[in-house]
Structure formats: C-alpha cells, structure tokens
Computed example of a mutant assay.
Amino acid sequence: MTAERVALVTGGASGIGRAICARLREDGLQVAAVDLKPDAAAEVAMFARGCDVTDESDVDSAVAAVLDRFGAIDVLVNNAGITGSQAATTCHETPVEEWDRVHTVNVRGPFLASRAVLPSMVARGSGHVINIASIAGLVAFPGRCAYTASKGAALMLAKSIAVDYAAAGIRANAVCPGMVYTPMTSWRLDQPALRTQVEDRIPVGRVATPDEIADAVSVLASGRMSYVTGHALVIDGGMTAL
C-alpha cells in the first residue's frame, strides 16, 4: 500500500492512454494500467494487467488486483475505446453486431470499470472518474453513427456519476478530444488528402497529439479544480467553435 495518489487507466498501452499513463507518472501518481496488451502498458505504468474492459469478471478481477497492490484508486481514467470498422457508418447501413461491438467497448467498458471502482471511492469519501469521450459526443460525426452515439453515452455517464456521487465526495468529468493522431487514426491521417480535409476544419490548423489530451487529464486529476464536476472539457483546436 502507498500514501501516494493512485490512478487506474484503461487502454493504457497505446495512443492517448499511453500518454496519460506517462503524464500522470510524471505528476507523481502511482499509475496502474489495464489493456489487452499488458506488456506494452507495463512500459509506462507501474502495474499493468491484461483486461478486456467489456468482461465484467475480468474488470472486477483487475480492479481488485490494483486495490490489493496499491490500497486505493484515487483517479479512474476510462480511456479504452474503439471507433468501429468502416462498416460502422450511417444508421441504416451499420450492422447490428458492429453497433454492439462499438457500444460494448465505449459504453459498457466505462460502466463496468466505474461500477467496480466506485465502492472503494465511496468508502474513502473521495475519488475522481474521468471518461475519455469525444467531441463526437457533442456534435455528430458524419457517417459514424455508432461511434457518435457511444461517445454521447460516455459523456452522459460521467455526468450521471457526477450527480449521483457528489455527496460522497466523488467527482466525474469527461475529456472530449477532437482529432488526435494515434495508431487508431493514423490510417486516415497518414493519407495527405484526408489529413488536409480534417485540418481544414480545425481553426488551429492541425490535429492534436496524445500528449495534449494527457495535459487535460493531468489538470483534472491534479485536484486543483476541485469544484469542477459533471463537465465536458473540450480539447479540439477550436473545431466545435466553427
């Protein structure tokens, strides 16, 4: 056990999750990560465990292991997520199984992790749940029905937790990135014509880096903004201001 603050990050092996793990460690937190690729997560976290965030028993076991190792979880970052395949497009063209796959990871995952962690936070009278949502949870991404709906749900899950657990000393917020260059988006952003289309819609003229999203999580996780809960923190280079 440790007196230092502890963060648990889901999907910590790559992209935004990896950057969050590295940044929170720099901030002095003890960082645990769960991912389908635990060896990669172990490169940036103090403790890593393989976990399928869509599996209730897997999530419960992973959370129990983190609590056993560190004694507490002060910050839960629900980062694990997917965009869906190219089949996950407009509503009537999206196969039901693809809709379910996106929502199982992006909505069921944060629900299961939060459900597993919250009892220990309630018992201690403090804690912070941070969901990595998306600006797609605020404005619809054309041709990405399943993803847009799932990120809206992830955002509202954070708001629901904020409302239900405020009296217990627990906060919940969502970070809503715009376009970020990660292994998940590189297939698109590595194509010059497609990247230009994306960046032409962003006032600052470029996509974000994972480290810039990690900066936002760092600020929320620091505890300095103790009155902020139920908030959607948009990090999009001005994209949704247009």
Rank of each mutant, 00 (worst) to 15 (best):
V9S: 03
V9W: 00
G12L: 01
A13H: 01
S14K: 07
G15W: 00
G17E: 01
R18H: 05
A19Y: 00
R25P: 10
V34D: 02
L36R: 13
L36V: 11
A42Q: 07
A45P: 04
A48I: 00
R49E: 01
C51T: 02
S57K: 15
L67T: 14
A72T: 02
I73Q: 01
I73D: 03
I73F: 00
N78D: 05
G84M: 13
A88W: 11
T90C: 11
H92W: 10
H92E: 14
E93A: 15
E93C: 14
P95D: 08
R101I: 07
P110C: 06
F111W: 12
A113V: 10
P119E: 11
R124L: 07
S126F: 04
G127W: 08
I130T: 03
I130W: 10
L138N: 10
A140L: 12
F141Q: 09
F141G: 06
R144K: 15
L155S: 14
L157T: 13
A158G: 13
I161W: 00
I161N: 02
G169D: 07
A172E: 03
A174V: 14
V175H: 11
V180E: 04
T182R: 05
M184T: 08
M184F: 02
S186Q: 15
S186F: 01
R195W: 02
D200H: 00
I202V: 11
T209C: 09
R224K: 15
L233S: 12
I235Y: 02
I235R: 05
I235M: 07
G238M: 05
G238P: 08
M239N: 05
T240Q: 09
T240V: 10
A241G: 11
A241T: 14
